[in-house]
Simulated scan of single mutants.
Amino acid sequence: MNALGQLVLMRLRMLMRQPEVLFWTFIFPVVTSLFLGLAFRNDSLGPVRVAVAEGAGAPALMAKLEGVPELSAEVVDEASARRRLARGQLSLVLLPGAVPEALVDPSQAEGRTARLLVEQALAAPEDAARPAVVKATPVSEPGNRYVDFLIPGLLGLSLMSSSLWVVAGSLVAMRGGKLLKRLAATPMRRSQFFLSYMLARAGFALAEILFFCAFARWLFGVPMFGSYFTLTLVGLAGALCFAALGVLVASRARTEEAVGGLVNLVSLPMMFVSGVFFAAGNFPSWLQPVIRALPLTAINDSLRAVMLEGAGLASLGAPMLVLAAWTVVPLLLALRWFRWT
């Protein structure tokens, strides 16, 4: 074989020995297709979900809407209905009145279908040719837009990615440079070493959270219905959680290539299923308990509850317990498995 052939063969062998190349070439497309296929599976079309806001005329409107098999209607309070419309959980909200008002999100594809079905349901038989029986109002004010849903998810994703990559990457780099071996000879305890990484990460996360909030407020007008203090505490809890996961990921990895593959293995599934870009409710019901137990789901739900619903820390008990578990358990495992060389 000539020199060119030998060089090509050498390069192919080097590529096959790099875990990150195999991951991005073979595993990542399969994982992406699997999760997005589950989220946007081509099932038979179900009924369009609409809500009637509580009020004097709500029972009469519900009686008419229930006669349309293509609609799934329920009566809820207006504030909850608006939040669910903004999150994509409803296609239309109907406000009772002399002329009922239909709130629709222009960014939702099903909004127009829902409006036409509602108009058809409310039209009297003799008025079937005159569909203008409701007033359609596009909803795009802050708190009810897709960007308002997206920003907390992106903040959670940023905290996860930066924590995992910074902590795990630096630990493996120190191991490769023999610095960890030198630190092992000092009277420092392993727990102190781990906590120093986590606390440093929390300090950097504080600046990250404040910058993200200011950026979202200035550029997109994303509202804050809750407390900035509560949001900061939630963000710091998430940063500590993912820093603990980063320590665990780096416990045994020897090379930066190996730790890169492990970080991707941990983070990419959560990026798809934990409600960063679209609601986690798009996934099948049998997968929901697993999704709710993931740390990125917990922090995304908590950030959205604080920013868009004004939730306080006391009402976030369940997701905070999830984050606490994902902080303590990885730390205990890392204390047992971590090696200095």
Rank of each mutant, 00 (worst) to 15 (best):
Q288I: 00
A184T: 01
R87V: 01
M1Y: 02
A132N: 13
P138C: 02
A124E: 09
V234F: 03
F28M: 11
G260S: 05
F23W: 07
L331V: 00
R145F: 03
E309R: 02
L92A: 15
L265E: 01
F338M: 14
G235N: 14
R13F: 00
L262S: 02
A293Y: 00
I291V: 14
L219V: 12
L265F: 03
V259C: 01
F194N: 03
V31P: 03
F35M: 15
F40M: 09
M320H: 04
L296E: 03
L219C: 06
A98N: 14
L236Y: 15
V30R: 13
D148E: 01
D127K: 12
A51P: 06
P106Y: 12
L303T: 01
R201M: 07
T230K: 15
P330F: 00
F204K: 13
R182M: 09
M174G: 08
A311F: 00
T186Q: 13
S80G: 11
P295Y: 10
S91R: 10
L195R: 14
A243Q: 10
L316C: 02
A109L: 10
G177S: 15
A324P: 02
L287H: 01
L12K: 05
L36Q: 12
V134N: 08
L94T: 03
L233N: 11
L150Y: 08
A239S: 15
P319Y: 02
T297K: 12
P47Q: 04
F278Y: 14
P284Y: 08
D43A: 09
P106C: 06
A298T: 00
S302E: 04
V328P: 04
T32F: 15
L236T: 14
G169E: 05
A56I: 00
L296T: 01
P19D: 02
W340S: 00
F193N: 11
R112K: 12
A239D: 10
A53Y: 07
L294A: 13
K64P: 04
